[in-house]
Amino acid sequence: MDFSAMSPAEQAHMNRIIERKQMQDFMRMYSSLVERCFNSCCNDFTSKALSSKEVHFYPPNLRDRSVLTKPIAPPPQEQCVLNCTDKFLKHSERVGARFAEHNAEMMGANMNK
């Protein structure tokens, strides 16, 4: 976006608007991320315990002694949420980078008309 045609007063005003919008966008992004990871990772509401899957996670084969030295991994549902969050942020960042490139290109094309 190009705000160079604006007066300083207008630019200051726009900056406040942008700040507020970024806060709003961040919050919307946050809650949509929670919803997304919830929907992808949590499907079983019929079992008794909330995290019944956790039990199956601790290694079933006790002869494998290496597990004792490894840090205990979080339960799968939780791991799914962490990966989902992580991946979404990286996805979002990559889209942002590509978006900025294409947008700049488009602006340039409009200028040359």
Partner: peptide
């Protein structure tokens, strides 16, 4: 992929 086996792209 929504399997989320890892956190990296």
């Amino acid at each position: 992929s929504t399997r989320y086996a890892e956190g990296d792209l």
